[in-house]
């Protein structure tokens, strides 16, 4: 098996632009490419966050992973299957499930379990097997008790978990989530994040989380920063977020913890730069305060 086969997702030098528009006189206007030579490999079982501000091309990239959009140049392989090949279409979509921002606009049925059954029904799975998959998927997102509710009776976070269950029922290897928490309240956001982390940990599902929330990205194994259709940073969250100036120059924030550490470093304190968790930060601050208290009085330094 060659290297590209073992990757879950292999994006090779893709370029994408939306179809040309017309100006007021009807002359075609060549549109700017949204994605300009993007190359990205995502390992099986990993948790990758894709960061970028609005219009950076991150959603467009997500839509390439399950063949909603096809690249103008380059190619995208999902588990070794080329998304541009018509014959692979449903296999690709089954392998790489997609969850969108607005849960209301992706729930099809009037009852939770019917909605979760939608994808396996489309795949022609036999009824007994559908029943088993639906129950498993609903348990995996902790929504089994709500199986006979109407989606309109659920909170935003619950609806989004149902949407995730709807994707899990296809038994995908990978789930791409396009800003799944953007429309949720803090509690719903927490529920959804816990769910996708659990799926990644316990079922080994590869997660690609498109987000503009730094705290969410900080919890990933890897952070890919995309700006103006190009990948500009690609590393562990610790490494990416320690480059505070670069992030700020890209118009992105860093997690509050990182910001605090950076400010401390700017002020001349000796603290390690690669801190992204609150616990880590507490440890650093504790050590810092103890040293300051027991050490020489700062006024006489």
């Amino acid at each position: 098996m060659n290297a590209s086969m073992s990757d879950m997702i292999d994006v090779q030098h893709i370029v994408f632009r939306y179809p040309d528009s017309e100006d007021d006189e009807g002359n075609p206007v060549k549109s700017e490419p949204i994605l300009k030579d993007v190359t990205l490999r995502v390992q099986r079982g990993s948790f990758t966050a894709v960061l970028g501000h609005n219009g950076s091309g991150k959603s467009t990239l997500a839509k390439h992973i399950n063949a909603i959009l096809l690249p103008e140049e380059g190619r995208v392989l999902v588990d070794g299957l080329d998304t541009a090949d018509e014959a692979n279409l449903f296999a690709v979509r089954q392998k790489a499930g997609m969850v969108f921002q607005n849960p209301d606009n992706q729930i099809v049925a009037t009852i939770v379990e019917e909605d979760v059954a939608f994808a396996p029904e489309n795949l022609g799975v036999p009824p007994e097997e559908i029943r088993r998959r639906v129950d498993d998927a609903l348990r995996a997102v902790h929504m089994y008790e709500y199986r006979s509710h109407a989606p309109s009776q659920l909170s935003g976070g619950q609806k989004q978990r149902v949407a995730i269950a709807g994707v899990i029922a296809m038994q995908p290897d990978c789930i791409v989530l396009d800003e799944p928490t953007a429309m949720l309240d803090p509690q719903g956001r927490q529920e959804v994040l816990e769910t996708i982390h659990r799926l990644n940990r316990e079922q080994g599902i590869t997660i690609v989380l498109i987000t503009h929330d730094m705290e969410e990205a900080a919890q990933a194994d890897r952070v890919v920063v995309i700006d103006d259709g190009r990948i500009v940073l690609d590393d562990t969250p610790e490494k990416v977020f320690s480059r505070v100036e670069e992030m700020k120059a890209l118009g992105l924030d860093v997690p509050q913890v990182t910001e605090l550490i950076w400010e401390l470093r700017q002020a001349g304190f000796e603290v390690p730069s690669e801190i992204i968790t609150e616990d880590g930060c507490v440890g650093v601050l504790e050590a810092l305060l103890r040293n300051t208290a027991s050490g020489p009085d700062p006024d006489h330094r």
């Binding site: 909603i68 969108f100 099809v108 396996p120 029904e121 489309n122 639906v134 709807g166």
Partner: peptide, 26 residues
């Protein structure tokens, strides 16, 4: 706008019309 998003979400879940479709509850 909702209709368009829903259509994309349905495609993502391999919807391809009634042909070869099974049902959870027949």
């Amino acid at each position: 706008r909702r209709a368009e998003e829903l259509a994309t979400a349905m495609e993502c879940r391999c919807y391809r019309g009634g042909e070869g479709r099974t049902r959870l509850r027949s």
